[in-house]
Design a protein around this nucleic acid. Structure first.
Length: 936
RNA sequence: GGGCGCGUAGCUCAGUGGUAGAGCACUGUGUUGACAUCGCAGGGGUCGCAGGUUCAAUCCCUGCCGCGCCCACCA
């Protein structure tokens, strides 16, 4: 697109990122640059890790999205149809909690008081209000997402996909209702999955209680960390091989407080040498106990659910405990045992306690009906895909984590007792009894007839078929568990009235990760067979934190393979966590979080991005020190000033993409160096070595382009010089600068775009420029050898001058000894540069003896007379140091060459190189020795 | 109890079977018209410890020590 506003303008003296970042981003987005029309281009697709829609950008997002943006921008510059699929996640629990808290703070009616419909409306309102915060912040970071196709996990398309998947899994027998123990969060009043439970080690107690034996012959001591669950004990278990208790197995004991007789059973789960060796079995409140219960049907162990959903004690407890919190119940049980003289002892005990990762309260194993996905079956293909390499992890070691989890995967509980999310597409109605009555089962949700369908109309069709003989009207009502009194005629419920059949929808919503798992294909239009889907699925690489391999990556693999038959992405790049400068995990409670937006304000988005990139080494967390960001802000300033210098010397961008024809070695050299830099960038990015990419850019820009090339061009551009050479230099410098900007653009998009326009009148933005083809850039080895020699000479002179305290401004003369014809030619050709950078010039007369600075550079010795100025002792020390270094190295090489094993077994090239190095070092040492001798 | 990762210059980290690197910090020095958010130069490491393989080990193998993370049902 033509943009007259982009005509070259003077580069300001001060670099101010805030001045242009927002403007540049708006331009890109307005001009459709993030996804230009490229009908024939090869697609490449990355899906964003959808952030919480109502959240805000934290430093982890900054890392994650910088890396993705680099890959996308690099591919876009290569001409690919690079699509970064973007969108946000509805984040069920998190969002519902936020809105509930806001209602509470505002003194508004609570969620339950206002009812489901009104509450869900409130959440949508909150989304409308704050949903653009994070997407705006991603823009500030510079993320070049395909915003034109932004998605949301609860938009119509995703909703359709979720429903489709749910119904299909159900039909495939891979999704089912089951009554079993779940991790119950009493604060949130919902089940959560295994992954949402975090175990914390706490200093608790182990209580030892005595249970009287039925026959009065004594007591059996049990140990527990959870006395309140005693009220639900159904058995006591001992190890079958434990001689202490062998005679008790099969007998019964009396459960105090409850006064219930419970069996004593043997199960190898019990460890004889832990606690008392006897374990109380509370099947409804402990996962292990539930397994024991299932293994011992003969014992008729009762399963007693002791608690209400909020973890207060239920009516299944003895009256004295009902309504107590579980904490109060624990105290009372202990006190009551003590009063009965049945508390044997209590000892401190450090143990793991499950907490809800969102609510922070202790999780209760709880017996409920929930929906489960048969994850073990879906895991098979997901495991195979990584085992056979269709998807690979980078770094590769993460595949072990993935395998280990999937190999041991448990059924995935996907229902949540929440209101914000995808409501489960299952409808229930009364079951038909054999004698033709309607049976509404209100005490056991699962005993009713269930219709799973993609929408109510289809469920209704199924219902009509099921109830076809009833001749009744079918009516949709709210859940009878909640509102039956208002909605349902008791006579209807009892089946007395057959003219109406009430059906109701499942009240639960799905785990947020259920929809996230569909993200790579549902965002592309699936289940419709869209062009987008055909073109952009499977994706290329997924970039994400290792912490959500289980939550998200594994589940995308499972669902992707099941529903599309293909892996959702070929590579999973896992980066680490961003920690503070001391290596501490950032957390709000610790107060050590850093806000990426503040950093952007302070240093610019480019500096933050470059920092993240440079520090992203595979397999390591990032310790973020603000000093690093400052350093890369300085790097941006350096780049800015280099461009400003170029501009002031008549160097501009906008020339052809192919390198200009150049004669001068310095220009031929820099062209080759650009090629080497691009090669290094390509290799780094292809291998996901973000640090390597940053290194290649940094060292080229600063140490090669600025420190040497620009300095070396100064004499070439000087007034009164060779006009043709100056022109060649301007065009090469402009070309090199342009390529440098393009190579830097993926990581520093803002400053590079800004300079791109300031340096030339362009008909296109840099974001759509062409990435250089490294292979097409000529590397002139002779030019490289010459400039390397030149750099070596200048460095040598500078170093010697400093060490001998020669005043920086002093110009010295030099003569050479033993210089080859090539060296003499080079000296002549580069005289102006040498004079400028090293402050030395050839002597018109031969060097006399006496005080002299002597430098060995290659085969030549440079002699710089310094009569009267030189500190002879210092010069002697300097030469001796250089000589001994060369000699030491020569000896090491000689040793290697003298070793029979080396000569016989090392590669011929290695031997050849060792010989050459040895000879070079020997020559250098000799020349230095001679120089020392001359010094006297 | 399993699994993974880390231990290289004061700090943060790269790296390679054959002379140890970067950034920052530090020291000295410099206003040579791009840049003091800078230039130039310099000091600084027995590459955690001990064995083994090898002509050669910081790199490969084994063990140990220290640190971190993940998974796991010890009531």
């Amino acid at each position: 697109m033509t943009n007259p506003a982009n005509a070259p303008t003077l580069i300001e003296k001060t670099f101010d990122p805030a001045e242009h970042e927002a403007r540049r981003y708006a331009d890109w987005e307005a001009n459709g640059c993030f996804r230009p029309a490229r009908p024939d281009a090869e697609p490449i697709t990355i899906v964003i890790t959808p952030p919480n829609d109502t959240g805000s950008l934290h430093i982890g997002h900054a890392l994650d999205n910088t890396l993705q943006d680099i890959l996308i921008r690099w591919r876009r510059l290569q001409g690919r149809d690079a699509r970064w699929v973007v969108g946000t996640d509805h984040a069920g629990i998190a969002t519902q909690m936020v809105v509930e808290r806001q209602l509470a703070e505002a003194g508004a009616p609570s969620r339950t008081a206002m009812g489901r419909e009104a509450f869900v409306e409130k959440v949508w309102a909150w989304k409308a209000e704050s949903g653009s915060t994070i997407t705006g912040q991603l823009r500030r970071l510079g993320a070049s997402c395909d915003w034109a196709n932004e998605r949301f996990t609860m938009d119509d398309g995703l909703n359709a996909a979720v429903t489709k998947v749910f119904v299909q899994l159900f039909k495939d027998g891979l999704l089912y209702r089951d009554k079993r123990l779940v991790n119950w969060d009493p604060k949130l009043g919902t089940a959560i999955s295994d992954l949402e439970v975090e175990y914390r080690e706490i200093d608790g107690h182990m209580w030892h209680f005595r249970y009287p034996l039925e026959d009065g012959s004594g007591f059996l001591a049990v140990a527990t960390t959870r006395p309140e669950t005693i009220l639900g004990d159904g058995a006591v278990a001992v190890n079958p091989d434990d001689p202490r208790y062998a005679h008790l197995v099969g007998k019964r004991c009396r459960l105090p407080l409850v006064d219930r007789l419970i069996p004593i059973i043997a199960d190898s789960y019990v460890e004889a040498d832990f606690g008392s060796g006897a374990v109380k079995i509370t099947a409804a409140h402990d996962f292990n106990d539930f397994e024991v219960y299932k293994r011992h049907p003969e014992a008729n162990i009762p399963v007693i659910n002791l608690m209400n959903p909020d973890a207060t004690m239920a009516d299944t407890c003895p009256p004295a405990y009902r309504g107590l919190t579980r904490e109060a119940a624990r105290q009372k049980v202990v006190a009551d045992f003590d009063a009965l003289g049945l508390l044997e002892k209590v000892e401190p005990h450090r143990h793991q306690v499950p907490y809800g990762d969102r609510s922070g309260v202790v999780i209760e194993p709880y017996l409920t009906d929930q929906w489960y996905v048969d994850a073990a079956t879906l895991a098979g293909p997901a495991l195979a895909a990584v085992r056979d390499g269709r998807t690979r992890f980078v770094p590769a070691s993460w595949d072990k984590t993935y395998f280990n989890w999937l190999d041991n995967i448990q059924p995935w509980c996907v229902s949540r007792q929440l209101w914000w999310g995808h409501r489960i597409p299952a409808w229930y109605g009364p079951s038909l009894t054999e004698d033709g009555f309607l049976n509404y089962n209100l005490s056991d949700y699962s005993k009713n007839k269930m219709f799973v369908a993609e929408n109510y109309e289809e469920a209704l069709i199924e219902a009509i078929a099921y109830y076809r003989n009833m001749n009744s009207e079918i009516l949709l009502v709210e859940n009878p568990f909640v509102s039956m009194n208002s909605n349902l005629n008791p006579d209807v419920l009892s089946g007395k009235i057959k003219s109406q059949i009430h059906i109701w929808r499942d009240t639960d919503v799905l785990d947020t990760w259920f929809s996230s798992a569909l993200w790579p294909f549902a965002t592309l239009g699936w289940p419709e067979q869209t062009d987008d889907f055909a073109c952009h699925y499977p994706g290329d690489v997924l970039v994400t934190g290792f912490d959500i391999i289980f939550f998200w990556v594994a589940r995308m693999m499972m669902q992707g393979l099941h529903f599309t038959g293909e892996v959702p992405f070929h590579t999973v790049y896992c980066h680490g966590l961003v920690r503070d400068a001391k290596g501490q995990k950032m957390s709000k409670s610790k107060g050590n979080t850093v806000d990426p937006l503040t950093l952007i304000d302070r240093y610019g988005a480019d500096a933050l991005r470059f920092t993240m990139t440079a520090m992203e080494t595979q397999g390591r967390d990032i310790k973020l020190d603000e000093k690093r960001i400052e350093g890369y802000r300085n790097f941006a300033t350096k780049l800015w000033n280099a461009a400003r210098f170029a501009q002031s010397n008549g160097i501009s961008g906008g020339g052809p993409e192919t390198a200009p024809e150049a004669q001068h070695p310095i220009n031929r050299w820099i062209i080759g160096e650009v090629g080497a830099m691009v090669t290094a960038c390509d290799a780094a990015l292809e291998g996901f070595r973000f640090d390597g990419y940053a290194d290649a850019l940094y060292s080229f820009t600063w140490n090669i382009f600025c420190d040497w090339y620009l300095e070396l061009t100064k004499p070439l551009l000087a007034d009164g010089g060779d006009a043709a050479l100056a022109e060649e230099t301007r065009s090469v410098a402009g070309w090199a600068l342009d390529r440098m900007l393009v190579a830097l653009h993926p990581v520093m998009p803002f400053i590079t775009e800004e300079l791109w326009h300031k340096l030339a009148s362009r008909d296109h933005d840099l974001i759509l420029a062409a990435w250089p083809d490294a292979a097409a850039i000529v590397r002139d080895e002779a030019a490289k050898a010459e400039v390397d020699w030149l750099i070596g000479l200048v460095s040598e002179v500078r170093s010697a001058r400093t060490e001998l305290n020669v005043p920086p401004s002093a110009r010295l003369g030099y003569a050479t000894e033993g210089a080859s014809a090539v060296t003499l030619e080079r000296l002549a050709a580069n005289a102006p540069a040498i004079e400028r950078l090293a402050r030395i010039a050839p002597l018109s007369e031969p060097a006399n003896t006496g005080g002299r600075l002597q430098l060995v550079v290659g085969e030549a010795v440079f002699v710089l007379p310094l009569e009267g100025v030189i500190d002879l002792a210092a010069e002697r020390a300097r030469l001796e140091k250089a000589r001994s270094a060369a000699e030491k190295e020569r000896e090491s090489l000689a040793g290697r060459l003298a070793s029979p094993g080396f000569v016989e077994r090392a590669k011929p090239e290695a031997i050849e190189k060792a010989r050459a190095d040895h000879d070079a070092r020997a020559g250098e040492a000799d020349r230095l020795a001679a120089a020392l001798a001359r010094l006297g």
